[in-house]
Design a protein around this nucleic acid. Structure first.
Lengths: 196, 196
DNA sequence: CGTCTATTTGAATGTACTCAAAAGCGGTGG
DNA sequence: CCACCGCTTTTGAGTACATTCAAATAGACG
């Protein structure tokens, strides 16, 4: 089934009644998203959250100089959400775009609110999920403050080897906050001077 | 009462039954923390979370070169927690230290778990709180990736003017991820060339 | 095979850091 | 009350890390 991956994600994340997990899954609808298709655009109000079942997305912000900065990637088994826009119905400051042809399971706002109120375990599920994301982002923040670009690059490809293979240098640069030319120089240094 | 500030924080954050808020507050115990006293040390397993009722704290990480990087500050009305260590009972990678003589309300792990299970609104409270923190950290992440140190400094003192007054340049530098000498130069540039 | 995108490389430049030393500031004790 | 100690801030000089711009090369895809 379409919801198998989602259901197993839920069950491995929190201890929750299987019936509840299934009821929650039934609120999601599948959708395909083509490569380069934009799921959420800056300025729009996000009316959905989504679980990726196939493919790869980038969630990013574009600043005044039109430079793109990637907040996170999402591939199979990861979530897509602009929490701020979705929760408070504010215009989004983020864009969500498919990097590959993808498939997702979407839940709309009203159905998620229904779930919060009527399916007891869902509140906990999202509390735990958000805490996990938050810890991961805290680690990334500390890393960005404390270490140089070359080591950050190495840490990234070591931590997410599968993901890194599916990304271009331009994507990785926009995630690490460095220029793509510099990513190229780092890779070169690694290859020739066997830096890692 | 000691719990007044905590109770009003809870009621303004989520719509929750007042009785439930009071029951939750009753699980906290007050404590004073002297300036420079360390509430949580790297390597320890965090057994508490705390709400600051007076004073100011820094939550920071120290890297191999013994350089301190501040993840966040917490003054009156803010929370202190190492989510990862507290939730998963892992050794902390963070330190929590009082910058001023302070007072906090602490809740221990077992009482918080009791609250999750027996006070219905608490799960939602922490889901919402974590989402708010997460959105704030996402914004900070994007800002760190996309703008220069001088503008980050200006944004910081504009966003947290009260907090900034209570901090030294060394603290602000450790939060922004730049050297304290450079903070001094930025301040100088602002004063003489009226940069902002 | 041609077009579009991604990667590499060089040269010049800019942003921020390190180290060192001096000056300022505040609290504490004699 | 003021002299001193410790901590913070400032300033200069030299350096390191990373960027920008431009052009060449390599790859991928229809």
């Amino acid at each position: 089934m379409n919801t198998d991956l989602l259901k197993s994600y839920i069950l491995k994340t929190v201890s929750i009644d299987e019936k509840q997990a299934e009821e929650f899954c039934s609120l999601f609808i599948p959708r395909t998203v083509d490569k380069k298709e934009i799921l959420l655009k800056e300025g729009e109000i996000s009316g959905f959250e989504a679980f990726v079942t196939k493919g790869l997305f980038k969630v990013y912000h574009v600043n005044q100089e039109m430079v793109e900065h990637i907040l996170y990637f999402a591939m199979e088994g990861w979530w897509l959400a602009d929490i701020d826009s979705f929760n408070h119905q504010l215009p989004s400051q983020l864009n969500i775009e498919a990097i590959e042809n993808s498939e997702i399971m979407m839940i709309k706002r009203s159905d998620k609110e229904y779930a919060y109120e009527h399916i007891p375990g869902v509140e906990k599920l999202f509390r735990v999920m958000t805490q996990l994301s938050h810890v991961a982002l805290q680690r990334r923040m500390i890393e960005n403050l404390s270490i140089h670009a070359d080591q950050r690059y190495l840490n990234f490809i070591e931590k997410y080897p599968k993901l890194a293979q599916r990304l271009t240098n331009v994507h990785i640069a926009a995630y690490l906050g460095i220029s793509h030319e510099f990513v190229s120089r780092i890779r070169n240094k690694i290859v020739h001077k066997r830096l890692p």
